[in-house]
Deep mutational scan, measured.
Amino acid sequence: MDVFMKGLSKAKEGVVAAAEKTKQGVAEAAGKTKEGVLYVGSKTKEGVVHGVATVAEKTKEQVTNVGGAVVTGVTAVAQKTVEGAGSIAAATGFVKKDQLGKNEEGAPQEGILEDMPVDPDNEAYEMPSEEGYQDYEPEA
């Protein structure tokens, strides 16, 4: 019985440690998101679009440190934060509304985080759909 109880105690310690790591990862992701939003706020009209992409990228980098179902929630929060940063930029006159959601080359930025393969159960990952990809044929 002692062996059984000791095993359960060790398992509990492992769960607590994993929860603490997840909590730490979420806190880091939130900190990076805040950094990115402050970065966007300090940019001029020309830099705002690039700044919004930076927020998304920093958040995406930190999301990889967070495991399990938390990833889905962090990704949703990050996307809403990026959308909010863009709205703030438009409201303050840093950028025109028609410039939001495009990178410096004018290509749409939507789907940055949505296409990231995420499995809350950590069982399997699927690649994003290939609808947006084109076949590449090298020139002879």
Rank of each mutant, 00 (worst) to 15 (best):
A140W: 14
E126Y: 09
P128V: 03
A29Q: 02
K32N: 02
N103Y: 06
Q99V: 13
E61W: 14
A89S: 05
Y125K: 08
Q134P: 10
N103F: 08
D98W: 11
L8S: 00
K34Q: 02
G25T: 15
F94T: 06
T64R: 10
L113V: 15
E126D: 11
G67M: 12
G67D: 01
P128M: 12
I88P: 03
E139C: 03
T92M: 03
K60T: 04
A11T: 03
G73M: 14
V49L: 08
P117S: 04
S87N: 06
P138K: 05
M127W: 05
V74E: 01
G14N: 06
P108C: 12
G106P: 12
V66D: 01
K12Y: 15
E126S: 05
A69V: 15
V77M: 13
A53E: 06
L8F: 01
G73K: 11
L38T: 05
V26I: 12
K80T: 04
A124M: 10
S9K: 14
K102S: 01
E126G: 12
D2P: 01
E130A: 05
Q99D: 15
A29P: 00
S129Y: 05
V63A: 05
E131M: 02
V37S: 01
P138M: 07
M1K: 00
V49E: 03
G47W: 11
K6W: 03
A53T: 04
T59E: 00
K102L: 14
L113N: 01
V26R: 00
G106Y: 07
K58L: 12
A107P: 07
A140K: 10
N122F: 02
D119A: 12
A140R: 12
G41I: 06
K45L: 10
A11V: 15
D121N: 08
V70E: 02
E139A: 09
A27F: 12
F4P: 00
K45H: 02
K34E: 00
S9Q: 10
D2W: 02
T72E: 14
T92W: 14
V71C: 04
G36Q: 13
V55T: 02
G14C: 12
D119V: 05
K43M: 15
E20Y: 14
A124S: 11
E110R: 11
N65T: 08
P120W: 05
L8Q: 00
V70S: 02
M5I: 00
Y133F: 15
E20I: 13
G51T: 12
T54S: 04
A11P: 00
I112P: 10
E83V: 14
A19E: 00
P138T: 08
E28W: 04
E46V: 07
V3S: 03
E126F: 04
K97F: 14
L113P: 10
D121C: 08
K6Y: 02
K58F: 12
A27H: 07
T92L: 11
A90D: 06
I112M: 05
N122R: 12
T81Q: 02
K6N: 09
E104W: 05
T54P: 01
K60R: 10
G132L: 06
T92N: 08
V71M: 14
M5E: 01
K12D: 00
T59S: 04
K58I: 15
D119Q: 11
A124W: 11
N122P: 04
N103D: 13
A140V: 14
E104Q: 12
A76Y: 15
K96P: 05
A124T: 03
A53S: 11
L113Q: 13
K60N: 02
D115I: 04
A90I: 05
V52Q: 01
T64Y: 11
Y39P: 00
A69Y: 14
G36D: 02
V77F: 08
P117C: 09
Q62C: 09
Q62H: 07
V40E: 00
K21T: 05
K45G: 03
L100R: 08
L38G: 02
V70G: 01
T92E: 04
E83C: 04
A78P: 02
E46R: 05
A27W: 11
A91K: 04
E137T: 06
P117N: 05
T44P: 01
A91M: 13
H50F: 15
A91C: 11
A89I: 13
E28C: 05
E110K: 06
A29T: 08
P128K: 05
T92I: 04
Y39F: 15
S9T: 02
N103G: 05
V49N: 02
A107Q: 05
V118M: 09
V63Y: 10
S87L: 14
D98R: 11
G25S: 12
G67P: 02
P108Q: 11
Y136A: 06
Y39T: 03
Y136L: 10
T33N: 00
K43P: 00
V74R: 01
V37L: 15
S129V: 07
T44V: 10
V66H: 03
P117T: 08
V15N: 00
V48S: 01
V37M: 08
A78L: 13
L100T: 07
V74N: 01
V49G: 03
G84W: 10
P108G: 04
N122W: 06
G31W: 14
G106C: 12
A85S: 04
A19P: 00
N122A: 04
G106E: 08
G132F: 10
T59K: 01
S129H: 05
E137F: 10
D119R: 01
E123D: 10
K10A: 07
G84L: 11
V49H: 12
M1R: 00
T44L: 12
V15P: 00
Q99C: 09
V55N: 00
Y125H: 15
K80L: 15
E137K: 03
A85I: 14
Q134M: 12
Y39A: 02
V40H: 02
A56F: 07
Q109P: 12
S87G: 13
F4W: 03
E137G: 06
V77E: 02
G84I: 14
Q24H: 15
G106M: 07
T44M: 13
G84Q: 11
L8W: 12
D2A: 01
D121K: 09
E114A: 03
K43D: 00
E114H: 07
K97R: 10
G7C: 15
K32M: 11
A124R: 12
E139V: 10
G132D: 09
K45A: 09
E105C: 02
K96F: 13
E46F: 14
E46K: 07
A85Y: 14
P138R: 05
A56P: 01
Q99R: 05
S9D: 03
S42K: 13
E83H: 11
S42M: 11
D135C: 07
A56H: 08
G7S: 15
A29W: 09
M127I: 12
E105P: 04
A78F: 14
H50S: 14
E35N: 14
E114L: 11
N65P: 01
P128N: 07
K23C: 06
E13I: 04
A107E: 03
A76P: 02
K32W: 15
K34M: 03
S129K: 04
V95L: 11
G93V: 07
T92C: 12
F94R: 01
V74A: 08
A56V: 13
D2V: 00
G67E: 02
E28Y: 04
V49I: 15
T72L: 10
S42N: 12
A124V: 11
E57N: 10
K6L: 05
A76W: 13
E61I: 06
Y125D: 09
K58H: 11
V3F: 04
G68W: 15
K21D: 00
T64E: 08
A30G: 01
M116E: 10
G14Y: 11
V63R: 03
V118L: 09
G86C: 13
T59V: 12
A19T: 02
S42E: 08
Q109G: 03
E137N: 05
K23I: 02
V66F: 15
E83G: 04
A69F: 11
E137A: 06
S9L: 08
T92R: 08
G68C: 03
G51Y: 08
V63L: 13
K12A: 10
H50R: 14
E110S: 06
T59Q: 01
P138G: 14
H50Y: 06
A27C: 11
T44K: 01
G93K: 05
Y125W: 09
V95H: 13
